[in-house]
Amino acid sequence: MPKQLLCKENLAWLGSAIVIFVVCSLLMNAGIINSYYQITLYNICINIILAVSLNLVIGICGQFSLGHAGFMCIGAYCAGIVTKMMPNFGGFMIGLLIGFVISAIVALIVSIPTLRLKGDYLAIATLGFAEIIRIVVQNMEITNGAAGLSGIPRLTTWPLLLAGVVISLIVVCNFTRSAPGRACLSIREDEIASEAMGINTTRYKVIAFVIGAILASMAGALFACNFYVINPTQFTFNRSIDILVMVVFGGMGSMTSSVIAAAAIGVLNMILQNFSDIRMIIYGLALVIIMIFKPSGLLGTREFSFKKLLNRRKEK
């Protein structure tokens, strides 16, 4: 193992993950986080994975995808079908892996033709693909059609969920701070210049898209094994917009803000649970207002970093 992995900032991140894990576990055991709050907590974690993975595609690579729900749908159904046959941790893992493979293949098929398109055309094409995925799921036997799957064993546990969040954050952050990540950023900034600098732009767009799809399918698997029931109407265009709202609220390109936005919206959803119409109106208005007054999102592209924090203390 390279010694750089054991630097102070990585240890600080590891430490904070352990603290969050222990504190939440204790609070759950003590009943302070009751089953009602627990649903919110679990939802927030799933949404963090979705928001971070979509942010990779939109915020880092600059490719505007409106089809994220489609990949979540694939992950959810793969996990749901396998765990119904094998209701244990092994089954979950197999379902998860099958979901990875299928969503990666579908993402490849979707991305190679559509990623040639620019901006808003791409958005509509990905939306179309996600809807096709949903319609296919709705018409298959193994997925039990429009009725969906019920009685999925509840295998999503707190450690598993937190592991999912940590893994997706590590994957996306490590990717961003590397040569392939820089290639993606340069595509976002100026595609023609990027290609002139020797970057195979299609290749890196596809890579970002596939990583995003795999992480979304992980979120889908955790989702399916948490809520017992899944059906195609849970994975419509509206779900993609929900994820988009989190990415846009926080700030495109910043993972810190996606995490915060997912948490804030999770809490907001809980508070406004009985006013679902008003909630949607607020979301709509918020999208408009943010785009007009602060299009970079509430936090912009700023990232929280232990490295900067530690360096600042050293300077003092």
């Binding site: 901006g119 808003d120 917009i241 846009v248 008003i278 949607m280 109106i281 709509g284 999208l287 785009m291």
Partner: peptide, 24 residues
Amino acid sequence: HATRIAALITAIGVSYVLEYTTQY
């Protein structure tokens, strides 16, 4: 004169407002 993506997100926001205000 903003990016097309910003305009598209705004349009989605307007769409939500119209739909759910009508529903309300």
